[in-house]
Design a protein around this nucleic acid. Structure first.
Length: 543
RNA sequence: GCGCCCGUAGCUCAAUUGGAUAGAGCAUCAGCCUUCUAAGCUGAGGGUUAGUGGUUCGAGUCCACUCGGGCGUACCA
């Protein structure tokens, strides 16, 4: 429908040159009395051209050539909006489209042929994924799905670092737990990893090999064991969340391949770095940032900036048209340095989209739970999923805009309550499945022969909503706003539930109407299913 | 101090380049199942969009300042 209006505006623009000067936007008005779609073009042009907006609106309307079978009415309203009203017979056409395209309905080709990478989770293997990581994981996976729906070929990548002090402390934490286990009296330092999972790994080693490693001096063995076990655990958690990474990228590789060293040379060569106090600094202040930052410490060890820039260079070299980085807000100070570094080397940083999501606040029994992997007072994602299920967890994490803080109330989530919005969506799907099972028994069949019978307000509202599906996905995806899809689905489910309460499907006024309504609810079912799959949720046939 | 994000109904949150009368869910109250799943539907109450000023035909949205909260502000990542 929107495309139709856009088309007639484009036709008119050959006569009205000024229509080419603005970005045409058609919105669905809040008030039903304001029509099905609305344009504010005349208002915007009025300012530009210094003319009366209502006059302009009249001029635009008189230059639009419309098919009366599609649009029943156009009118000027308020200060100069142009409102469009659609014919009922035109709206039912969407049912045929849905039934024809099935699981592809809503997809767009706009970015087909383009490659995107979404880098997310990227937690170092120092402990199980927590609820805190969950939001990152779910947003990243959903954004990946969305980009695929608008045509991108998407790779999902997990970047990690298994070197450095963090990991040494981790390895040593495991070693001490192991020694405790075989009977040695050892003080466990306070600033070591306190989590029970370390003890579990130690037990596993002990059960397999006894005290074989009691004299193991090298930290390497324990570090490797810890990393291996923790990574296996992380992958299992992601798998439980229905997330499959395409690649795991180890920062270490950047050193082995000599990329870090090469980059350092390049900065030096381009006179973008200098030495001071025994460290190497990047001239970020010359590149428009606040201050210069260290890229190699006086100890000779690079800071994260150097490998991070080198890592992003590999992304460019791998030919991605779009690179999405997803971080929690605790990283919001780091990425400008990386981007500035890339830009100084001539890379097009418009291709890099950095998404920052705000933190999850965990509420338990009315109190805020402070999270720290080191101190081990966290709730793991697995624990949460065991209590409420993966669908609920996924939904909770994307139902709010990513720039909003998210309150995760464990008490409510654990209740497995009927009030949960996920169930509302899934219930609509299950309800339709149930109806369709019964129509079979009643020997009623789907038919698109009499769709013109779908004239009630409840039916028309559903049809218009379905029309908006593709544009909603496109808008949400281009703007990286997964929560909008959840909102859309809640609205569609709501319109269906309302329809269900007002209209009979089996034993409607006529057999023809029944069969047209079967076509309608089959279409709704398909759209719900498609939307749920973008969100990575199941579409149950029974509840 | 400085940077980023946020402040909308009792609570959790929505709200297409700035658009028309700011919407949902929960909670509260009142209704709807001998008829396709009541995990549903209908109705009621609930708001100076933190505050002040500005920009304009029009501001929850943009600008300035104030207040309040989160995250940063490392030779940690």
């Amino acid at each position: 429908m929107k495309n139709y209006i856009l088309q007639i505006f484009e036709e008119a623009s050959s006569k009205l040159e000024y229509l080419k000067d603005i970005n045409l936007v058609f919105t669905v008005p809040n008030q039903k009395e304001h029509g099905d779609y609305s344009s504010n073009a005349a208002l915007i042009l009025a300012k530009k051209l210094g003319r009366n907006p209502r006059e302009l609106a009249a001029e635009i309307i008189s230059n639009l050539t419309v098919d009366e079978k599609v649009i029943s009415k156009m009118e000027i309203a308020g200060p100069g909006f142009i409102n469009f009203y659609f014919n009922n017979s035109a709206t039912t056409e969407i049912i045929n489209v849905v039934l024809d395209q099935k699981e592809n309905f809503g997809k767009s080709e706009k970015y087909s042929g383009k490659k995107a990478m979404v880098e997310f989770v990227s937690a170092n293997p120092t402990g199980p994924l927590t609820v805190g990581h969950g939001r990152n994981a779910v947003i990243g996976d959903t954004v990946s799905n969305m980009l695929e729906w608008i045509g991108y070929k998407v790779d999902k990548e997990y970047y990690f670092n298994n070197a450095g002090r963090q990991m040494r402390v981790l390895g040593d934490s495991l070693r001490l737990r192991y020694l405790q286990l075989i009977g040695q009296n050892i003080d466990f330092p306070e600033d070591y990893y306190q989590g029970e999972y370390i003890v579990d790994i130690a037990k596993k080693i002990y059960e397999n090999d006894g005290d074989k490693y009691k004299d193991e001096k090298a930290e390497e063995f324990f570090k490797e064991q810890a990393e291996k076990e923790i990574f296996a655990d992380i992958e299992k958690t992601l798998n439980n969340l229905n997330i499959k990474m395409d690649y795991y990228f180890n920062e270490y590789r950047l050193y082995v391949d000599g990329r870090v060293e090469k980059l350092l040379d390049l900065f030096k060569q381009k006179n973008l770095s200098y030495e001071k106090d025994g460290a190497v600094w990047l001239k970020l202040s010359e590149l428009g940032n606040d201050q210069d930052k260290v890229i190699v410490k006086s100890s000779g060890e690079p800071t994260y900036r150097l490998p991070d820039i080198a890592y992003h260079i590999t992304k460019f070299e791998r030919g991605y048209d779009l690179m999405v980085d997803l971080f929690g807000s605790d990283h919001n100070a780091t990425y400008p340095d990386v981007l500035a570094g890339l830009k100084s080397l001539g890379y097009d940083i418009n291709k890099v989209k950095v998404l920052i999501h705000q933190f999850v606040t965990i509420m338990d029994k009315g109190e805020v739970v402070k999270m720290s992997t080191r101190k081990a007072n966290f709730v793991t994602l697995d624990e949460l999923m065991e209590e409420v299920g993966a669908d609920v967890v996924r939904y909770f994490f994307i139902m709010r805009s990513i720039s909003s803080h998210l309150n995760f109330d464990l008490d409510i989530a654990k209740k497995h309550s009927d009030e949960n919005p996920v169930f509302y969506l899934q219930y609509a799907h299950a309800r339709i499945c149930s109806i369709l099972r019964m129509t079979e028994e009643e020997k009623l069949e789907l038919s698109v022969e009499n769709l013109h019978l779908l004239i009630t307000e409840a039916e028309q509202n559903i049809l218009k909503k379905i029309y908006q599906f593709e544009e909603e996905i496109l808008y949400s995806s281009e703007n990286f706003e997964p929560h909008r899809i959840a909102n859309y689905l809640e609205e569609l489910a709501g319109l269906f539930h309302k329809f269900y309460n007002e209209c009979r499907i089996i034993r409607a006024e006529s057999k023809e109407l029944s069969e047209a309504r079967i076509a309608l609810v089959t279409a709704v079912k398909q759209v719900l299913k498609n939307g749920l799959s973008i969100l990575g949720l199941s579409a149950p046939e029974r509840m």
